[in-house]
Amino acid sequence: MVAKLLKGCHILIVEDDFYQAQDIRDTLQQAGVEIVGCRATVPDLDEILERSKIDIALLDINLGDTQSFDFARALDAKGIPCVFLTGYDVTVVPNDLNYAKFISKPAEASAVITALHQVHSEAPKASGGGGQQVKS
């Protein structure tokens, strides 16, 4: 079992494939993650933030007929870090988003958790909610 490294961490999953989404969700929940949402398409960010804060967004790049880059930018505007989990090569990530962590599919659960943990511990706690409007 993976240690609950990500206990209490609020994570949003955007992955268009149901089975992969289920797989990741199960994996993260086992690591103690609070799943804020698990969506096949780009969700309404404000709607989610009304319910919960988001520590990290785990994004598939290809969402059927759209990509998640614009959503990543919107997240960045709110100060929310994102991690890409995708079958594409890292070169497809636009330059303005290359600060984001990148995980190649198919990924080991441990690789995903490690990456998310890294991002989570790097994120400055003070400003962690700076751009987020968390409503209780």
Binding site: D17, Y19, Q20, A21, T86, G87, S104, P106
Partner: peptide
Amino acid sequence: QHRVRNLISMIRG
């Protein structure tokens, strides 16, 4: 590359 990886990932799931 994307599809192969995605497919593997999907089948795994």
